[in-house]
Amino acid sequence: MVDESSDVSRHPAPRNLTMLLERVQHAGRHEADVSLEAILDAAGRRSFAPFLLIAGLITLAPLVGDIPGVPTLMASLVVLVAGQLLLGRQHLWLPRCLLYRRVSRPRFVRVVQWLKRPARWVDRLLKPRLMWLARPPAHLPVALVCLLIGLAMPPMELVPFTANGAGLALTLFGLALLAEDGLLVLIAYALTGGTLALVVAGLL
């Protein structure tokens, strides 16, 4: 079970991408390899947004997201979390076999440094607007759409570039919930629809 007491409770929840990246860069700092559990602990587990952001960023990131099987692994994370959110669970359960998946620290640090380049530019575009689309209970339709994305991600490995679209959609949903940016929610909905349409066309 995900233990909320493991959150970095002494610090406020991340409100933008730069803050999130600064936190996760130090995940499992004393370990040679970085586990998914350490990344999630550093990001914060008190809301749905960090899970979406981590899954989306890992799927998008070079050197990591292109590894065969990584989109499917992130899909498992999204399906488990979104499904439990829709069921109204207050404490999110994740299997140890998922949390213990690791990536080498040098690769992880390179990815985070690469993501920091556009992060400040992205953060300048974020602001609270159409907040009713990004606040409860609007997180429930977001969770439903993310569940559909997660279920579609394994076949996306067979259709070029669609996994990147899924990763971008998850990232946008996560940023939207963090910043309470409803416009970004609408963009993520549209991107999800286009990506799923490409997957269906590519598999037919």
Rank of each mutant, 00 (worst) to 15 (best):
L92C: 11
L87N: 13
L98S: 08
S35C: 04
P141K: 05
L73W: 08
R46V: 09
S35N: 09
R117L: 13
I39K: 07
A32L: 15
R45H: 00
L133R: 00
S104P: 00
Q113M: 13
P118F: 12
L148P: 05
L115D: 04
V70T: 02
W121I: 15
K116V: 01
C97G: 13
K127E: 07
P137W: 05
A134Q: 07
V111L: 09
R105N: 07
S35E: 11
G44P: 05
L140Q: 10
D123H: 04
V64A: 07
I67F: 07
L147H: 13
L53V: 15
L86Y: 10
S104C: 11
Q84D: 10
L125T: 02
C146V: 10
R129M: 03
A61W: 01
T72E: 14
Y100E: 15
P128G: 05
L140Y: 13
V112R: 05
L126G: 01
L147T: 08
P95D: 14
V145T: 08
I39Q: 08
L148K: 00
C146M: 14
R129W: 07
L73T: 13
L85F: 13
V122Q: 00
V34L: 03
R102Y: 09
L126E: 00
L125N: 01
R46Y: 06
A42L: 09
K127P: 01
P128Q: 00
D41I: 14
L77F: 12
S47A: 14
P68V: 06
V34C: 10
R117M: 04
L63D: 04
H139W: 07
P50T: 06
V111A: 11
V142K: 14
A82N: 04
R29V: 06
V78G: 10
L52V: 15
E31W: 09
S47Q: 02
L147W: 09
H30R: 12
V142E: 00
L140V: 06
V145D: 00
R101K: 15
P136R: 00
G83I: 06
D33N: 07
A27K: 07
R105L: 01
I54P: 00
L63T: 00
I54Y: 02
V103A: 12
L140D: 00
L130D: 03
S47P: 02
P71M: 04
L133N: 02
R89M: 15
D33W: 10
L99S: 11
R124S: 10
W114H: 15
P50E: 04
L92R: 14
Q84S: 12
A42R: 14
L130P: 06
I58D: 03
W132L: 14
G69P: 09
L36D: 04
A82I: 04
W114R: 15
D33G: 03
G65S: 08
V142L: 11
L80S: 15
A143K: 03
R124D: 01
L98E: 10
L125I: 01
P71Q: 07
F51A: 09
A43K: 12
V81N: 09
R135C: 12
A27F: 01
L36V: 02
L125V: 00
V109H: 10
